[in-house]
Design a binder for these strands. Structure first.
Lengths: 208, 208
DNA sequence: GCGAAAACTGTACCTTCAGTCCAGTAAATC
DNA sequence: GATTTACTGGACTGAAGGTACAGTTTTCGC
């Protein structure tokens, strides 16, 4: 068995996660039953519990998977943005525009969507899930902060701001934008909110 | 029976809602059982279903109640803010500061908390709930828009913005801020995000 | 104070769902 | 060919959301 190929178990596990993900994003976690997942995955209940200790373990795996995908998307966008401009401010603004476009084109699987789904379901959810959530949010903060720290070095802000809060504001904008997008059933709302954040950043460091 | 006093049924109904609300905010909707609620309310299952057709009807009543309370809080704050300054911009800024302070002092019953709880649980939730959610969001938008429309009349914005999006940005900030507050288990995060929005508004119309 | 409507109680029953236990088996791996 | 991995099958449990419906108490209008 080579290092890259998957065992049979890994393949099944991923099939379960794939099916569960689309069901959870469509109907919410508690409205997705194990019976329903195993029916679509064509395996038995025993088979399911061979892979996941309980339903919370499934949630954990879904969240972990979702964070990996989100990190890929976000990382990719802002890495490309850095390539397109040597100036940190303009790179950040380019990244934000691409980010808004990407989000406007999605309709269900928004980065952060699983975060909020799980966060709102939780409270009885275990500590590992909360820790993963926190770790993910801190990772995003670091990414945005890496731009902001470079920016303040060359662009004095027009008013005093805490760049940690400014970094978190983007995460907050995404999470809040998803709620509004769901309520109004329109992905454009999220894209508009990200662009509004972009306008703020531009105004703050560029003055227009 | 005078017009203001409550019938026995209304009293019981409100007792149920009171108990359900704190349980839902503490543990989430699907982790709150009807059995648990009726035990605390000291009535039977039949009694519960006399007041609510099913659990979804309870969610609906909770959301409606929560919107009424939120409207009261928000309305009160921004009415007071208008009293404190004749200038629409400064009134809005005062309102935002009071709003941030109010949110920072709360820890569970944030306005909008029930909105997001229900929004994320939904999808199988009926159309009435989605309509209520939309109506509530539109009401908030109107409130904030009433300030912004007055503001743009005397303060030309430093850069071009869609004030509808800017109005929604506050709702978005609250919803997103609640997610972050939950993840980091710190109400200050929400307050900081509202203050960051305030900084944006000040910068946009006042330039500092 | 009486009758009707409102506000329940009590019991029994049904379904879905998460989860457990465990014995057996097919397939991959060493 | 033995061992581990990846399951199947079946029987069962307890919690939770209901449903059905007959009977009882409480309140209200007159």
């Amino acid at each position: 068995m080579s290092a890259t190929s998957k065992t049979k178990g890994e393949t099944t596990r991923e099939r379960i996660l794939e099916i569960a993900e689309s069901a959870v994003l469509a109907k919410g976690f508690s409205n997705t039953s194990i019976d329903e997942i195993i029916a679509e995955a064509e395996l038995t209940k025993s088979g399911f519990f061979y892979h996941f200790r309980d339903k919370t373990a499934l949630a954990q795996a879904l969240l972990s998977r979702s964070f990996e995908q989100d990190d890929q998307i976000l990382g990719g966008i802002f890495e490309r943005a850095r390539e397109l401009s040597d100036d940190p401010l303009h790179a950040f603004l380019i990244g934000l525009k691409m980010f808004a476009e990407t989000m406007g084109d999605m309709d269900e699987a928004h980065p952060g969507c699983m975060v909020a789904t799980v966060t709102y379901h939780d409270k009885q959810f275990n500590n590992e899930i909360r820790a993963m959530n926190r770790a993910g949010m801190i990772r995003w903060r670091s990414l945005f902060l890496s731009f902001l720290e470079d920016i303040v070095r060359t662009y004095p802000p027009r008013t005093e701001v805490d760049i940690d809060v400014l970094a978190d504001m983007l995460s907050s904008t995404v999470e809040g934008g998803i709620v509004l997008s769901k309520v109004f059933n329109d992905p454009k709302v999220l894209a508009d909110q990200i662009l509004q954040y972009r306008t703020y950043v531009r105004l703050l460091f560029l003055g227009n």
